[in-house]
Design a binder for these strands. Structure first.
Length: 260
DNA sequence: AAGATTGTTTTCAT
DNA sequence: AATGAAAACAATCT
């Protein structure tokens, strides 16, 4: 699930339940294979401290404080951050769990183990070192035009390149192109200014809608591509047909009628 | 039961 | 040199 809106929904949960509470323990799950986790000393450094703020850049989530250590979380394909209370059953697939004063706990779940948790100095330096592009909801129109318009490859690949633009993945890049009427395999540098502007506007609409819904897919309108993400299905917006192709090594869905 | 799956990183090629 | 495409990674679901 996790692209920008889903990451933001996870961040909001942490903000709501886990801030300004003293961390009493940091526990590792049984299976931590291929998941980077803080070392024992790094976990110990968190005990007795509090998270006082959270942040997010693209798909990356951060929790920390002005003076203390920060943690960065990437959800991979199937990860989630789940606050719960000690009376509840512990979530399955928990790789690391933070226990706060009172009965609040926070589990980092990752069934398919493609995500990670890592201690970092600060969000800003992490973003810089990783080379992430501007957050998709923060980038301004001129910068978006310049970044995407300069890419020689497929426009879908450009939208998903985190070092150009941070936050879009497979689902919402397809949805953005669907609304903008542009085929996913179009060369990005071949788009005119009107098309780049349309992409920018539709990206903001797609992400903004999902942020408003807290990434609850069940509340999305019926005319979204997500509802018709299947080869051969009728296009929910025009009478055309949805087709599945591969762009940049990933499955891409688009309408052959109104996207070109 | 083979094949696809929202993620990134590394490697290879142009 | 840099950019872009392809493969690898894990486990679950259809």
């Amino acid at each position: 699930m996790p692209e920008l809106p889903e990451a933001e929904a996870n961040r909001r949960r942490v903000t709501e339940h886990c801030l300004n509470r003293t961390i009493e323990a940091v526990r590792l799950g049984n299976d931590t294979t291929h998941v980077e986790l803080p070392s024992a000393s790094e976990r110990e450094a968190l005990v007795g401290r509090q998270f006082t703020e959270t942040a997010r850049h693209g798909k990356y989530i951060f929790a920390g404080s002005k003076t203390g250590p920060w943690i960065a979380v990437h959800l991979g394909m199937t990860g989630s951050l789940r606050p719960y209370t000690s009376g509840d059953a512990a979530p399955d697939f928990a790789r690391i769990t933070f226990e706060f004063e009172g009965d609040t706990r926070l589990a980092y779940r990752c069934p398919r183990k493609l995500g990670w948790v890592r201690p970092i100095d600060a969000p800003e330096s992490f973003v810089a070192e990783t080379g992430l592009g501007p957050d998709a909801m923060e980038i301004d129109r001129a910068r978006f035009r310049a970044v995407i318009g300069a890419t020689r490859g497929a426009v879908k690949s450009a939208l998903m390149a985190q070092k150009k633009l941070a936050g879009l993945g497979n689902l919402w890049s397809d949805e953005t192109l669907f609304r903008a009427g542009i085929a996913p395999d179009r060369t990005a540098s071949g788009l005119d200014e009107g098309q780049l502007d349309s992409l920018y506007d539709e990206m903001r609409h797609v992400l903004g809608t999902l942020l408003d819904l807290n990434a609850d897919y069940s509340k999305l309108p019926d005319d979204w591509l997500l509802r018709a993400r299947e080869e051969g299905v009728d296009c929910p917006r025009c009478g055309g047909t949805i087709t599945k192709t591969t762009v940049g090594g990933r499955s891409a869905y688009h309408c052959t009628e109104h996207q070109s």
